[in-house]
């Protein structure tokens, strides 16, 4: 068996700064790493027709999404000399200003992590079946579409 079973990247609710800080801390023992790069997606309080987005409610086709995350991981490890990679995405309600996506890549050298991170984030946006309901302050909503 070559491939491990895809592990879930989904977390219920926002990704906290404690969780992110702790992830960085855990890498102190991996001393072959010389460079980390981190992407944090934050829910933006967009204003649409005079109404402000107060939160996004995320849902996903979880089985397919986990499979896609797994494929993105495998392909990033093939393309780039990465020591490790972590991806976490929120499900459920994430308020404006909170973090909904955390991508963390590490490598011996810096140039690799800049390229790898962009590749991974763009692939997540394009290929993973996650859906976002933008909730306005008056509790009406619209559906988010990645541009």
């Amino acid at each position: 068996m070559k491939d491990k079973k895809p592990k879930s990247v989904f977390k219920e609710g926002a990704i906290t700064s404690e969780f992110i800080g702790n992830s960085i801390y855990k890498h102190q023992t991996k001393t072959s790493i010389g460079a980390h790069n981190i992407f944090l997606g934050q829910v933006r309080a967009d204003e649409i027709d005079g109404k402000k987005v107060s939160a996004i409610e995320y849902t996903a086709y979880e089985d397919m999404a986990n499979q896609k995350f797994h494929e993105i991981r495998e392909s990033a490890f093939e393309k780039f000399n990465l020591t490790c990679m972590h991806i976490y995405h929120s499900l459920g309600t994430v308020k404006a200003g909170e973090i909904c996506l955390f991508v963390f890549v590490s490598s011996p050298r810096r140039k690799v992590v800049f390229e790898a991170l962009e590749y991974i984030v763009e692939a997540i946006k394009a290929d993973v079946p996650v859906f976002g309901k933008e909730i306005f302050e008056d509790e009406s909503h619209q559906w988010k579409v990645n541009s």
């Binding site: 997606g41 996903a60 997540i124 579409v145």
Partner: peptide, 10 residues
């Protein structure tokens, strides 16, 4: 079969 509207991850 699954019907998937536009993706909005991240």
């Amino acid at each position: 079969i699954a019907l998937l509207p536009p993706f909005a991850g991240g």
